[in-house]
Design a binder for these strands. Sequence first.
DNA 1: CTGTTAGCGCATTCAT
DNA 2: ATGAATGCGCTAACAG
Lengths: 335, 335
Amino acid sequence: MATKDNVTIADIAQRAGVSASTVSRVLSGTTHVAEAKRDAVLNAVTALNYQPNVFARSLASGQSMIIGVLTQNFGSPFYDAIMQGVVKGLTGTDYFPIFADGQWQAAIEVEAVQAMLRRQIDGLVVLGGFLGYKEVKQLIGDIPLVMVVNRANGYEVNSIFIDNVEAAYLATRHLIELGHRRIGHICGRLDHPDARDRRLGYLKALEEAGIQPDPELVIEGTFRRQSGVLALEMLLSRGKSFSALFAANDQMAFGARLALYRRGIRVPEDVSLVGFDDEPVAAFMIPPLTTMRQPAIELGLEAARFMLARLKGETIRPARLKAELIVRESTAISR
Amino acid sequence: MATKDNVTIADIAQRAGVSASTVSRVLSGTTHVAEAKRDAVLNAVTALNYQPNVFARSLASGQSMIIGVLTQNFGSPFYDAIMQGVVKGLTGTDYFPIFADGQWQAAIEVEAVQAMLRRQIDGLVVLGGFLGYKEVKQLIGDIPLVMVVNRANGYEVNSIFIDNVEAAYLATRHLIELGHRRIGHICGRLDHPDARDRRLGYLKALEEAGIQPDPELVIEGTFRRQSGVLALEMLLSRGKSFSALFAANDQMAFGARLALYRRGIRVPEDVSLVGFDDEPVAAFMIPPLTTMRQPAIELGLEAARFMLARLKGETIRPARLKAELIVRESTAISR
DNA sequence: CTGTTAGCGCATTCAT
DNA sequence: ATGAATGCGCTAACAG
């Protein structure tokens, strides 16, 4: 550490006329210390601008006070918002977040987790990704794990997520209420529980409306933009007609939008389009995209809250959050 | 640290039949050690799956082996790509990056830097932002500082950046070659050197083409999307005509695009549009946006390379990278 | 080349 | 309530 942080606990002990242990005590607040000594210590701390050495502290205490956060894409506004929530939820506490990027690749996720482990994280928050709860748990051992966004099958008590079935149901129902009967669906990767849940919600809405689902109107994508392009081309090549499309995320909706543009198919005049995630760009698309908004910052905050409780040994159950339909011009025209 | 990493240097010393110092030596590679002992140590390390304790190491060595990376927005694909570059440039080394988000707000930047400082970072990489070299330097003291993207005035030797004047010149010249004469420019915040350089490049291209610059065709934005919307509305309310627009970044170009759409002005038929940054969405806009691509990953890699050199006490000068014009349909039609 | 000896700065016993 | 002593795991200066 190039910064000379010479001032140590011993210095302030001397200046305050107490022992180092006492200083340590008032700093950690573990034991009662006489008012007078307490004040003397605190004064010395500010006077000398004392900064505790995190390494010495961690070495002695066995706690790193670091929370690892594994995201999938630093560049995604949605994950960004969650991370902001986590940061916000952690500020004011003694915990500090470190971030790693799994890039939607299981192998990289594993590496990233291991790298964080080497930094002795006290807890791990996983945002999205393909690693299941058990797999991650196996990597990290006993340290607390919180999964966000994608629910951990069978470990829902340690997961922060929205009701995806309900959300997809609402999105699809919106299209039905607009008068659509032939509604296509671009799924996410079906090895992903979110993708399965959203398809379920889509089917549930159709069923409720008495619409016979057409398997050929459902295409499996990868959650990536390019797969939205491909999905649309596949849909068209099948020659099936449809007047509306529900994509399992905005990225795929963007891809579909571009493919429609290239084919000269107008949105919303010819086809209505609904996405999922409410990425910032959705509001700035041409035309602006109707989409489901996940309360991203709140998810992050809740993850932090839950993690802190776990770290303190408390057992709380995570709050369940809801997605909200944001209606924009991509579904403006009813038929 | 909930993970019981009981196996220490002493354990492997015992198993290898050497002293702890010798173990430390083969691990750090600072001194030559006899082949036989070396192998014995290495074997013990793998046999016992030894993981060094970073805190003990840092406490003893005085080096954290942590590089702080201050970005402005985890959610920006451009900064994301730079961070990826930094990560890539650091993997394989003993250094580990930690990230903080300044959110394009000087006060938050300062806080973030201080939080990282508390983590005893050995070096700091600053991506973008409003803090100047001197200001950051004042915060961090003697530890190496590398500025990326925005050049540090007078400290160019410690900055990784592209030639913004040249880049903006190329963008504007592209429009001129298409036949445009009345070309508007949406600047970034002019307290930012990049914004000033890009305006300079814009003016340079006009001058070279013998086009009299019209101050009313130049609007100062904030680099944010919304300011692109406002800039366009201001341009229109001034009643000046223009057939092309060069925005100092893609975000503002997106905003301008939306405002044009709302006014019923077509791109590129009525107005050609050029952005800057080549954010992924640019390729998926309607129509796809012509823009300048900064070599983001390479910037990150170069930053890491430069930082590592500085850390080793070497003095190298940073490579200068170039932006590249990506021509898409938003400037498809010449006039 | 290698073992021995000291700390790094702090938390945490153990006494008092 | 508080000081003294001990150790967290490792590196580095000191001898040989």
